[in-house]
Amino acid sequence: MLDIKRIPIPALIGIVLTALFVLAAVFAPWIAPHGNGEIVGDVWEPMSAAHLLGTDNLGRDLLSRMIYGARITLFIAVLATALSFSLGAILGFSAAVFGGWFDTLLSRLVDLLMSIPTLIMGLVVLSVLPTNLVTLILVMGILDSTRVYRLSRAVAVDINVMDYVEAAKLRGEGSGWIIFREILPNALSPLVSELGLRFIYAVLFLSTLSFLGLGVQPPDADWGGMVKENKDGIVFGIAAALIPAAAIALLAISVNLVADWVLNRTTSLKGGRG
């Protein structure tokens, strides 16, 4: 079903770039020319053959920092997305299939959580919680799971009222067959595409928190944190802060292109013929 030649060019670009980011993150210690915290030169050296992206506010090699930053950024974003997705999808599906008070209670709670902007709620909670990776992942994952919950519940409710699900119920099938064989295969594609969007959101949310000084703490730095470290250079015309910022944008666009393609494939499959 998947023929490389039939993947549209934007999606192909997205896939390749995303893969590059992932490779950089996984093999960071072997790829990076210098250590993460190693001071190798002057403050804010321009780009040169020795330091392809120049050096940062403490004289560390920016390229090496970027590669290690990819690692932290992707690590946290992946875990937070995984948490938000499993939590949101499981609860959303259960709410749709079981209904009743379980559904009402969860749905009202999610409405309540979503009536506060995520960033604001995140800031409120982070003002009292210790700043460490676990807290960060938990806060990001739980706050974002509300959106996954809404989507997966809506998708499952839509499928649950289809005639083919009714036919399966009339046949006497148990809820196992109905959830895993009738609903899940049809809910998968919109959810996979949503997975991409949630991941982008996690990357952006993490970067924003770190940029505000509430995310990853020094000496470690994700890309958002690196923007914060180097932002004072901007007024002197030093573009070092723009590089990690651009990397975030590029990663987000790549994943977006892939997610867009998955979504289009889904809708065209649904249309079918006749």
């Binding site: 924003t208 932002k231 723009l242 987000a252």
Partner: peptide, 23 residues
């Protein structure tokens, strides 16, 4: 639209600063 939903706010902000304020 697709691109700009992917941009973090600070990327847009600092690009503006870099060109309009510094350059």
């Amino acid at each position: 639209a697709l691109a700009s939903t992917s941009f973090p706010e600070f990327f847009i902000g600092y690009v503006l600063v870099y060109f309009f304020a510094v350059k």
